[in-house]
Structures are given as C-alpha cells and as structure tokens.
C-alpha cells in the first residue's frame, strides 16, 4: 500500500527491506507534519536571526572596529602630544642654558669691571700717598739741607775767624758753600 503512494525511487530499498514498509525518507505519510514543523522552526529561526541576532552581531563588530580605530587615533594623538612636549622641553632647556650663559658672562664682566675700578682706585690712592710721601721727603731734605748750609756757614765763619783772626765776609762764605754744595 505504502509502496504505491511513495516516490518512484522507493522500490529498490523498500523491496529489499522486508516487512518494514516504505523507505522512511520517501514515506509520504509524514511529509505534511515535517513541512509544517519545518515552516514553524525555520520561520522562527529566520525571525530571530534577522531581527535580533544578526543586527546585534553586526553592531558588535562595528563597535569593535570603531573602538579600535578610535583607540589608534587617540594613541596617535597622544604620541604627537608627547613629541610636542619633548620639543617644548628641549627648547626650554636650550633657552635656559643660553640665559644662564648670558647671565654668567654679564656677572663675570660686572665683577671684572668692579674689580678693575677698585684696583684703579686703590692704585690712585697709593700713588697719591706715594706722592705725598715723596713731597714730605723732599721737603724734609730741603729743610735739612738748609740747616746744613747754615751750620756750614757758621762753621766756616768760625773757622775763618779762628785762622785769620778776623770776621769773614758772610757773602763770600755763602758763595763758597754754595759752590761746594754744588760740587
């Protein structure tokens, strides 16, 4: 009975299999229920996939790729920032070094000028003192010489009076002493 209802291809397996009825895959008695349940399950599956699962997975994949590219961008920006900061620091360092050098030079020059001025002042002071001392010496010398002259006059007058017995001419003595002092 079943063999007549089923497909043309059933004779061989159906016949070889004794007493078991039609070859099950070609047995039409269950076709309707299989189709009904296939429609139900596949329809539900299609709905689940197209409405929930696939948009969600697509969203996840998109989110991930945007996150990755965003992170890469952020990393690049951070790197650029670090580079700029490094350049800034280098510049600041160079500036500071130049400034320090300039300051050192200025201080050095100022100190040298100050020292020079002090030295000059000291030198001039010393020179003035030296000059004063020289003047005093020569003054004292002339004074002493003057004393020597008067002593020599007195002595010469006394000697001349002793030898000659008469007072010597003071004019001549003075001239003679002046000559001797020159000699």
């Amino acid at each position: 009975m079943a063999e007549h209802e089923t497909h043309a291809g059933t004779e061989a397996p159906g016949g070889a299999h004794e007493g078991g009825g039609a070859f099950p895959p070609f047995d039409t008695t269950h076709f309707a229920s299989q189709l009904v349940w296939l429609a139900i399950t596949f329809g539900l599956l299609y709905l689940m996939m197209s409405k929930i699962a696939l948009p969600r997975v697509g969203g996840i994949l998109k989110d991930r790729s945007t996150k990755i590219s965003g992170d890469l961008e952020a990393a690049k920006a951070a790197q650029a920032k670090a580079e700029a900061a490094r350049a800034d620091q280098d510049k600041a360092l160079a500036d500071a070094r130049a400034k320090a050098q300039a300051m050192g030079q200025a201080t050095h020059q100022q100190l040298a000028a100050e020292a020079d001025a002090k030295r000059k002042a000291l030198e001039s002071e010393l020179n003035a003192k030296l000059a004063a001392a020289d003047a005093q010496i020569s003054d004292m010398k002339t004074k002493a010489m003057a004393n020597v002259e008067s002593i020599a006059k007195d002595a010469a007058a006394a000697i001349v009076q002793q030898i000659t017995g008469k007072a010597a001419d003071p004019q001549k003595i003075a001239a003679a002493i002046g000559e001797a002092a020159k000699g």
């Binding site: 008695t29 309707a32 229920s33 299989q34 349940w37 399950t41 596949f42 599956l45 689940m48 996939m49």
Partner: peptide, 18 residues
Amino acid sequence: DASFTNASLFMLIIFVAI
C-alpha cells in the same frame, strides 16, 4: 497533519541551539 514527531523535536532542538 501537524503531528509532533522526532523530526519536529530535532527541528526545535536545532532552532534552540542556533
């Protein structure tokens, strides 16, 4: 005929698994 068979059961299992 919409009888629930072992084929229907496995279709449901497939649906649930996916």
